[in-house]
Design a protein around this nucleic acid. Structure first.
Lengths: 129, 129
DNA sequence: TACTTGTATTATAGTTAGTAATACAACCGA
DNA sequence: TCGGTTGTATTACTAACTATAATACAAGTA
């Protein structure tokens, strides 16, 4: 999977990498059970430090998106066995985004349409830029 | 409007305050055109520094949620005159949250239902915790 | 045995975030 | 004009974060 990082942006590298992988899983460009590059390999490919990659992997592991086996390396967790109970944080963040839309005078239909479109784009495995 | 801050949490105070006000506007506990407390007044009420409040207000102003007049202080912007063009950042954040749901195996109906519920709760002006 | 895996440790440099104290210009009402 | 209000610019300081680097280690594989 192609991963692009913005080294000049505000978001830290490890977070960008984490997000890219989450987007990859959601769009099925990364299949469940699929192996991820080793931290050293990916670090070299991206031109960043291995510990930065490790930080992203650790985060993804803690959040239940991947599993890490010392033998086989990191691999994508199959979604069916993923943690069913979402962290309240997720819902809270979603509520805040919706509130921002509402506070700007967004209509319900408009918002739901946007959500649905974003879902479809991801679900069909297209690029999200 | 009652504002509760978590001084021990990870989120900075100014951001919590900013978010609380956005939620207040979305749920109409803060009406369009309604005046907000002065930075000093609110700072004293919350037991924080005035510049921290100012930082939240400045952020809200930059994002188009409030207007600030030196004479009258800060007041909620009426949503009809709010910036119609959303920042791409918003959509990007929403896409990431949806991706997290998808990556955890969330169904489309489940996600849409969650969005709709959050919208309704806000739109009816109830507390969001 | 040689090489791979993730990970822990330590160090370091740079940057940013967060809060605070203070002072100032603009404005308002009495 | 006089006090008191408003937002805000400036400055300062501490703490935390970010990224990198150099090692080192335990565990597993071929």
């Amino acid at each position: 999977m192609l991963i692009s990082l913005d080294m000049t942006g505000d978001d830290p590298i490890y977070l960008q990498l984490r997000n890219e992988i989450v987007l990859g899983i959601a769009s099925r460009r990364l299949q469940g059970g699929e192996g991820l590059p080793s931290v050293r390999q990916l670090a070299e490919d991206l031109g960043i430090n291995a510990m930065t990659v490790n930080k992203a992997y650790t985060l993804l592991k803690e959040q239940g998106f991947i599993e890490i086996d010392r033998r086989q390396g990191a691999k994508v967790r199959v979604s069916t066995e993923a943690a069913p109970h979402f962290p309240g944080r997720w819902q809270q963040q979603l509520a805040l985004l919706i509130a921002e839309g509402l506070a700007r005078g967004m209509e319900k239909g408009e918002l739901m349409k946007t959500c649905e479109q974003l879902f479809e784009i991801l679900n069909q495995g297209e690029k999200t830029q």
